[in-house]
């Protein structure tokens, strides 16, 4: 299955179940095969290959400039790779774009209320209003934003903004949710609140894939670690094994806090 068009699936009616839960599309596992991204002769992603399964929380770990963000953008069809393939699988793979969501490091919030920001995303999916309202209420409550629902989104604090971006992505009930350095600019309290919200998303059955350069956060959140360095995948191992004893010198140095 080639890279899916982000616009496909619009013509198809959304399948829905009763209640606020949308009927989730199944597009996993995701496989990257030899993905290469080059800019001005420099390989930013170098023969990147891995597979992401349903279930575990996958954390892409690595120093700044390792290519973590680029990898997420390639997975989400925002950057076409110069070589290699991104393959979605599962019964709904042809609608992959509708089954995934991405939360950016800097949350992009629209100049309207918190509620309207989530509503915007659901309207793009042509979900009817009663269902939208129920869904928005659910995700805002779970991310502890319900009392702020009518506030202009851009007046929220950094942590609240990031949770709102998460709630908006979650509202679409994706099969897999990508988060790019979600806590990079947050204080410890906000980080904890955000991580709780991420756990809630995971508990709803959504696969979490997040990048971070924060070891402590990786230890708290990860079921498996993908260690990226200079655009290459050096390790993909269960989190416990990784933190017990990484196999590569680069990962050992990174764990010790050395400059790579």
């Amino acid at each position: 299955m080639p890279q899916p068009d982000p616009l496909t699936g619009r013509a198809q009616a959304t399948r829905r179940s009763a209640g606020a839960q949308l009927d989730r599309l199944h597009i996993l596992p995701l496989r990257l095969e030899g993905v290469v991204l080059e800019r001005r002769g420099v390989r930013l992603l170098d023969e990147l290959s891995f597979q992401l399964e349903r279930g575990p929380c996958s954390v892409i770990l690595g120093p700044n400039g390792a290519g973590k963000t680029l990898a997420l953008r390639v997975c989400n069809g925002l950057l076409p790779p110069d070589a290699g393939r991104v393959i979605w699988d599962g019964p709904d793979a042809h609608q992959a774009a509708r089954g995934r969501a991405l939360v950016f490091q800097r949350p992009m919030l629209l100049r309207r209320s918190a509620w309207a920001n989530v509503d915007y995303a659901l309207r793009l999916r042509r979900i009817p209003k009663p269902e939208r309202d129920q869904r928005i209420e659910t995700v805002l409550r779970e991310t502890r934003l319900l009392t702020l629902a009518s506030r202009p989104a851009r007046q929220l604090s950094g942590g609240e903004q990031q949770r709102l971006a998460l709630a908006r992505a979650w509202a679409m009930d994706p099969s897999v949710l990508f988060l790019d350095e979600p806590a990079a600019a947050l204080d410890p309290g906000s980080t904890r609140a955000l991580e709780e919200a991420i756990r809630a998303v995971r508990a709803s059955g959504t696969k979490i894939v997040m990048t971070t350069h924060d070891l402590a956060q990786a230890e708290r959140m990860a079921d498996e670690i993908l260690f990226l360095h200079q655009g290459r995948l050096l390790e993909q191992t269960p989190a416990a094994d990784f933190f017990a004893g990484p196999r590569t010198d680069e990962a050992r140095a990174f764990l010790k806090g050395e400059v790579l």
Partner: peptide, 8 residues
Amino acid sequence: EPLRSLGA
């Protein structure tokens, strides 16, 4: 990019 990722 955020809007594209939302499916707009």
